[in-house]
Amino acid sequence: MRALFVALAALIFCRSVTAAAVELVIVYPQVREPFARVFEEIVRGAEDGYGQKVQRVALAENQSPVDFVHVLDRQSPVLVLGNRLARQVSKQNLQHKVIVGAVNGEFNGVYGISLTPSFESISSKLRFLVPSVRKVHVIAKPGTTAGDFDLGVGNSPVQESEGLHGFSLIIHEAEDIRTAATVYRNLMQTLDKDDALWILPRGSFVNNAMLSILLQESWEKRFVVFSSNPVHVKRGALFSVYPNNYKMGLSLGHLAQTIADDQPFSEGQEIVREMQLLSDVFVTLNERTSNHLGINLTDDMREHIDLVLPAR
C-alpha cells in the first residue's frame, strides 16, 4: 500500500515536473486591429491545440524576440507568429524548439506552418465547385515542380502531373513579369471552359493590369480563374481560400505538442525541421462570377463556402 502511494506520488510529481518543463511559449506581435484579431484567433487555437500550459508574450515593435527566447529552457517549444518575429528568431540558428506560424516566407531550420495554402486544400474546392474542369494551369518560376504544391506526387520535375481530384496540373514557366505576360497571352488563346487558371499567392507574376486582362478574358471565354489571394475574388476570380486562423492555431498547437513530446534535443544533433503548407482554410467565392459561369449554388454547396461575395 505504501509502495503504491509512493509510486502514485512519484507519478504525480513527475507529471508536474514534465508539465512545467513543456510549457508552450507563444510570441506574437502587437499590431493594430483588425490584424490583432488574426493573432488573437491563432493564439487561442494554439492554446486549445496544445492542451497544456501556455504562456502568451505579445511584443511591441521595438522588442526583440531573440533576447526573450534565449533565456527560455531549450525543452520548451516556442511558437513565434508573424514574419518579423519569425525572421529575427530564425536568423539566430537557435537550438530551441522553434515553431513559426502566420508567415509568408521560407524559413529554414524551424518547424512551422506557412500561410501559403496547399494545392490539396484549394483543388478540392475546385473539384467541388466546377467538376467539369479537366486541366489546371499555373504559371510559376522555372524549376517549379508539382511536388512544390504538396500534391503527394513526389518531387519529380514533370511539367504535367495527374494531381489529386482527377485533373491535371500543368505548370507553365516564366522568368519574370515580362515573360509571364507573353505566357499568359499565349495561354489565354488556348483556354476554354474545361480549363482553370490558378494564380499563386506569389510567384505567378500577376499585377493588376495582367489580372484585369486575365479576368476579362475568363469572363468572355468562360474558363475558371481561381486564386490563392482572396482580393482576386473581389475582382472577379471565382474563388479563393484564406486562412482559418483558429484551426491554423490548433494545428500549430498540435505540432508544438508533438515536438514537446519528443526526446530532449541534444547539442549539435541534426533535427528535421521544415515548414508545412496551410491546409486549414476558409473558402470565399464571387457570386457574380459563379452566376456567369452557370454554377448553380445549392444550399448544400453554400454550406461549404464560408464567404460569398454578393453580386453587385
Partner: peptide
C-alpha cells in the same frame, strides 16, 4: 507585422 495581409485579401 501585417505584411501577410495578402493571404487574407
Amino acid at each position: 507585422d501585417v505584411d501577410f495581409a495578402g493571404f487574407y485579401g
